[in-house]
Amino acid sequence: MKKVVISSVLMALLVLSGCGDKEPQVEATDSATQEVQQVETESVSSVEAPVVTESATESTSQVITRLESELKTIYFDFDKFNIRADMQANLSTGASVVNTQAKNFFVKLEGNCDEWGSDEYNFALGLKRAETVKKALTAEGVDASRISMVSFGESNPVCTDKSKECWSKNRRVEFKLLP
């Protein structure tokens, strides 16, 4: 019994004394490594993360603004909703932009009319204009599920003068991009 107690005490002393010798070295190494790691990690996260987030927000709206300026308005004749021959180029440009640079955005087509009428028919005319543009875009390969439409009738004029130039500017379909 005495032998067992003595050997246990000796073992304990050995273990404890051994630990006592190695501990400072291990700690020193560990803390040195941690410090280096901490500095590295912090510098990465604090520099990169915010920059990524900010540049993403800015660029989405900037990209939308830039691309929308490339999407040219389609104008229509009085009381008509067919695409005029001189608007075909605008439409093709639009389809091309929507299919390439703007392929990650949804497209909203806003139909508008001139001031001659504030009734439902005028709103429907604006919508048919948007629908014609939608059909033309899908014919050029744009996925229809990316396109939504709305009509603002005569209630969204870009020009309010009483002139033929002004009225013709209001009979239009505008492209809007949605994230």
Partner: peptide, 8 residues
């Protein structure tokens, strides 16, 4: 509704 929604 897409496009138009009016109570006539």
């Amino acid at each position: 509704s897409d496009g138009m929604m009016i109570c006539s």
